[in-house]
Amino acid sequence: MPKHIVRLILILVAVLAVAAIAKPILTVDSFYRFGHYRANSVPEIAAQEPVYQTPRYCYGCHTERRAQWSAGSHKTVTCEVCHGPATGHPQSGKLPIPTDAVKLCTLCHEAMPGRPKSQPQIQVAEHSGGQQCTVCHNPHSPKISSAATKVSGDAAAGKQRAAACASCHGAAGISPNESWPSLAGQSAPYLVRILSAYKSGDQTDPIMTPLAKELSATDIQNLAAFYARLSCKSADGSKSGGDAAAGKALAKNCAACHGETGSGGNPAWPKLAAQKPGYLVNVLKAFRAGLRKDPMMAGVARGLSDTDIANLAAFYAAQNCQSTK
């Protein structure tokens, strides 16, 4: 055999020998255990620590929030979706409470082509007038007063109890004077809410507070059921100082909660149509001055002048209270 071929063979053999020896030395033990990969990399990857901890981790301490959250419509939105991953909490500090609710909530609730119809969606520009969502909605249970919309009072029992209210609010719930509100046809959940607020002291009034303190929870339900069923009375032509047409333009800002003409909207909020204009003026001024407390109304009333208030009162007083808008 020619010399150069022999050399070539020797070199090849040497290379193969080195490769064959080197391979098992350089290959880690676990490499071929399950296949052409390093088996020990699997437990290495599995050993990474989870960052998102699941709501079970939060339940341990936040029992109150859990009860509220798990009963509400946001129960599919877990804690860490809004508050961020809980790893390190509470040892290394508090989790963020989102401050810009509009930015956060609209990630899911801005009306957008492509979102399924079942998803609750809003026109951001029209919905809140720039208010933060949390002014009206509790993020842990965002449906507004879903628990309070069910009023199961006995109207007949309420009628008897209402005898004591008749001197100011009228026997048929139509107030005989300008200062006190008419109650006939008012939304029952709102009546329950406001009476309960007088009773608890969240809302105060020199006349209403002592009266409401004597009412039991059942009395409140019964009274609300009674007044809600009475037939309201539309504008009797009583004139107030305001300009109803100017009030109508302003009232667009109120429509999201109180309905277009003050009769629609969420039952948790009062109907305003055909209400006594003097009463409406007093209440708005009380909100503006901070005498009557409500986070939403305080913000709304702050920007109103005396003329605006008179105009709004005139507009709502002149509306048909049988409407559903």
Binding site: A19, A20, D29
Partner: peptide, 25 residues
């Protein structure tokens, strides 16, 4: 030739300590 080399390498590899024991069993 290759077969011979491989056989030699296999014999070497069989010697304890010749392969990389860098990972726990």
């Amino acid at each position: 030739a290759a077969t011979c080399a491989a056989a030699g390498a296999a014999a070497l590899a069989a010697i304890p300590g010749a392969s990389a024991k860098t990972e726990p069993a």
